[in-house]
Computed example of a mutant assay.
Amino acid sequence: MLEKNFTRLNKYLSEVGYCSRREADKLIDQGRVTINGKVPEMGTKVTPDDIVRVDGDLVNQTKEKHVYLAFNKPVGIVCTTAKNEKDNIIDYINYPKRIFPIGRLDKPSEGLIFLTSDGDIVNKILRARNNHEKEYVVTVNKLINPLFIKRMSNGVPILDTITRKCEVEQISKYDFRIVLTQGLNRQIRRMCEYLGYEVMKLKRIRIMNVPLDVPLGEWRYLTEKELEILNTDVGDSSKTEEASVLEDTQPKKRTNNSRRFTSKNHKKGNSNKRSAQRSRDKKRKDRRN
């Protein structure tokens, strides 16, 4: 059989709309997936003739038309497919087809989140190195001053890294708008906490080209135009395996749809790597001589 007919198992599960690749990797690692009755290794490829089951249930190989939803998540709803979480987002929406959220919006936050049956687009959007914009309006517990805005914009040390430079704008005494192109765990809350502020309310109002325009707790389908632009924006995005490479080893392309920034620490790290490589090359040359 031609190699082109083989598909990685995690990609296969996402393409048929069972789950995202990330969730598929978890299922495979837990030994819950079988191919022709046998538990496969991570990275195993399948063919259209293979019988794939998850927890003993046959995975439907019929490729249906994918759905894409824009949902205004209320505070208290958890962005998980786990049924043991009573406030999980899937039960809340109660959509008749298997769907899963793209990324997360933590329980105390509200606003826009995508849900879909398309596992491939999940991975492209989730990869931080693709620089897809997400916009938030945030309310904090203290008066905002120019120094706070400047420091938030220029990057804050959290989680053993420096956040990327980003667009931040004050919109009232206690409210600001921020546009992120990365998705660190509870990033905005941690950034504010580092600067001595506490987030009282956090709402995501845009993901890439899609604005939040539905009432709280409701959803709508993405329009054909939104999907066209969204697919164009993620068209050059790295696939799962490629995007696993450390970000600073990959060159970045500038696009009109996203603002690209590089921190001073990042530049310094690349410079140090180049210096170390030149030193190693010199030592090899000296040994040859």
Score class of each variant (00 low, 15 high):
residue 247 E to M: 02
residue 153 S to W: 00
residue 5 N to P: 00
residue 152 M to I: 01
residue 103 G to P: 06
residue 131 N to E: 14
residue 279 S to Q: 13
residue 166 C to S: 11
residue 284 R to A: 13
residue 206 R to K: 15
residue 167 E to Q: 13
residue 147 L to T: 08
residue 109 S to R: 12
residue 7 T to W: 01
residue 11 K to T: 01
residue 223 T to I: 05
residue 166 C to T: 11
residue 80 T to N: 11
residue 63 K to D: 07
residue 202 L to W: 02
residue 138 V to Q: 09
residue 136 Y to Q: 12
residue 58 L to E: 14
residue 127 R to P: 05
residue 282 K to Y: 11
residue 19 C to F: 04
residue 267 K to L: 15
residue 81 T to L: 07
residue 215 P to K: 15
residue 203 K to N: 05
residue 12 Y to D: 03
residue 165 K to W: 00
residue 224 E to V: 12
residue 288 R to D: 05
residue 182 Q to V: 08
residue 195 L to S: 05
residue 174 Y to A: 08
residue 122 V to G: 07
residue 224 E to L: 07
residue 152 M to K: 02
residue 238 S to F: 13
residue 97 K to A: 01
residue 267 K to F: 12
residue 110 E to S: 15
residue 201 K to G: 06
residue 108 P to I: 10
residue 21 R to E: 08
residue 10 N to L: 04
residue 47 T to K: 13
residue 166 C to V: 06
residue 195 L to W: 06
residue 152 M to T: 01
residue 107 K to L: 09
residue 89 I to A: 07
residue 173 K to W: 05
residue 220 R to F: 10
residue 213 D to R: 10
residue 43 G to E: 07
residue 143 L to R: 08
residue 226 E to D: 10
residue 150 K to D: 03
residue 29 D to M: 13
residue 263 S to Q: 10
residue 134 K to H: 07
residue 124 K to C: 11
residue 27 L to Y: 15
residue 115 L to F: 08
residue 98 R to H: 02
residue 207 I to D: 00
residue 40 P to K: 09
residue 8 R to A: 01
residue 115 L to T: 07
residue 209 N to P: 11
residue 106 D to R: 06
residue 135 E to W: 04
residue 30 Q to F: 09
residue 241 E to R: 13
residue 60 N to P: 06
residue 138 V to E: 11
residue 5 N to G: 00
residue 209 N to T: 09
residue 231 N to K: 05
residue 78 V to R: 07
residue 88 N to F: 03
residue 108 P to G: 12
residue 105 L to K: 12
residue 222 L to R: 03
residue 120 D to H: 12
residue 43 G to H: 08
residue 30 Q to D: 15
residue 288 R to I: 11
residue 48 P to Y: 01
residue 218 E to R: 14
residue 109 S to E: 09
residue 169 E to L: 11
residue 221 Y to K: 10
residue 39 V to K: 15
residue 127 R to V: 06
